[in-house]
Nucleic acid binder design. Structure first.
Lengths: 243, 243
DNA sequence: CCAAAGTTAAACGGATGAGTTCAAATACGC
DNA sequence: GCGTATTTGAACTCATCCGTTTAACTTTGG
């Protein structure tokens, strides 16, 4: 049995005094340990040592390993979403469009969004979420609510503005925003082996370009196309009809 | 601490005699236990009991918990891919196109592909893969190779044939196939909370319709559009340039 | 300078589970 | 029918780790 690698700093003094500082130190340490070892293999002892506090302090603050895990996940999701939203606002809120080329702006936005997903921490959080989803079924919903929805909403708002200005032919901005994120991120799990392997800048650029390209093929204005095949085709003829 | 639910059959006699039969029984039992409890919480004792063999037999056959896990994952991926490929061949290989409407055929194929992903087992396998990806970095590649690539290839072949017949305007069938799967499956994690909650037939139909609709908006022929904006836009100006 | 509140470190209790050992049972060759 | 080799099942070893307890210590207020 071999350890995969120890946490670099084995003992980190609690950065500042006061209760909130300790809580933050514990959250940061727990994030690192959970990310590195996974939920089951993460030890409260190691988290406490890394945070520079005593083990009972961890239990005083969070009560439970599962509660600590939930706090870590929600906190990280919140921070991640806030970071993306801030970056998006800086680019989309300001009226200073850096360029008139829509493809370039979409590509820029795509990279902003992916920068979070592509970080080691982002991948690890996603893996943790997947791993414990069956044990904590409501956690995904909460994380999606505080971490995913705001980003999709911001993106949808921008797409709606673009559509209103005639730069895009989008009638359902929510759907288009979700599909945009899906298109630009779709290949990343395979390219990075779920985040366990670095992606080359070239692969990343190519994946984003392919996603943006297809998105524009679907939603660029000018071509006359039926609004949408919204008539839902029959679900599926239940297994092989074989006829 | 509460158990989530016991495996239904607590003791299953090994279906047949012989070595291969026992190996299969162990694999099936291990699949069920891993799916239900996750890698860390799955006990070899329970797997052996469910398979109707002795614990040392498990170690004799697979040597290790990790090796057993890998065998389970690869075996399941292989069977899943074979099932999808077979269903696709039954629909696409035969010259009996059930309908001329391309949207209907795409929707049908989408449901065939998703039927595997949507099963409890399919979701659980994906969660297991995500959960252990950091501990077994090569496992994802092997699973993708035996489970994912064949499906994408089959789909890409079909799309290429459609393009050759002029029914689609696709110049990169591999990319289009990957994007098709991404588009039809993109909303499912959110809708089903990573497979921990059943999806209503209506939601599933709507998600597939949205994906197929966007795919057709992008790749339906007839409209004249630039082949593809394959000129890669600059990656991203490295963080907030803030200029 | 003293007292009270909370925090620390260390050790403990209880439980779980991977992997091994060992005697008994089963299958098989002669 | 007998001896050999393999398989079984149950007990065992060893380690991990959650969560708690206890006693000493630090910090804060008077």
């Amino acid at each position: 049995m071999r350890t995969i690698g120890d946490v670099a700093d084995s003992e980190q003094h609690p950065a500042r005094r006061g209760r909130v500082a300790k809580r933050e130190a514990i959250l940061a340490a727990a994030l690192r340990v959970f990310v590195q070892d996974g939920y089951a293999a993460a030890g409260i002892d190691r988290i406490a040592a890394l945070a520079g506090v005593a083990k009972p302090t961890v239990y005083n603050h969070f009560g439970d390993k599962e509660a600590l895990f939930r706090s870590v996940m929600l906190d990280s999701a919140r921070r991640s979403a806030a970071k993306i939203i801030e970056a998006l606002d800086a680019r989309l809120g300001g009226r200073n469009a850096p360029t008139d080329d829509l493809a370039e702006r979409l590509t820029d936005v795509a990279h902003v969004i992916l920068e979070c997903q592509l970080s080691d921490e982002g991948w690890a959080l996603q893996r943790l979420l997947y791993a414990e989803a069956s044990r904590m079924p409501d956690l995904y919903d909460e994380v999606a609510r505080v971490g995913g929805q705001p980003v999709v909403n911001a993106l949808a708002g921008w797409l709606a503005r673009l559509a209103h200005r005639g730069e895009l032919d989008v009638d359902a901005p929510e759907t288009a925003a979700s599909q945009f994120m899906t298109l630009i991120a779709g290949d990343l799990p395979a390219l990075s082996a779920l985040g366990t392997r670095p992606i080359s800048q070239a692969d990343l650029t190519a994946a984003v370009a392919a996603g943006v390209g297809t998105f524009l093929r679907a939603f660029a204005p000018g071509v006359d196309r039926p609004k949408q095949t919204s008539r839902a085709v029959s679900p599926t003829p239940r297994r092989e009809g074989s006829r």
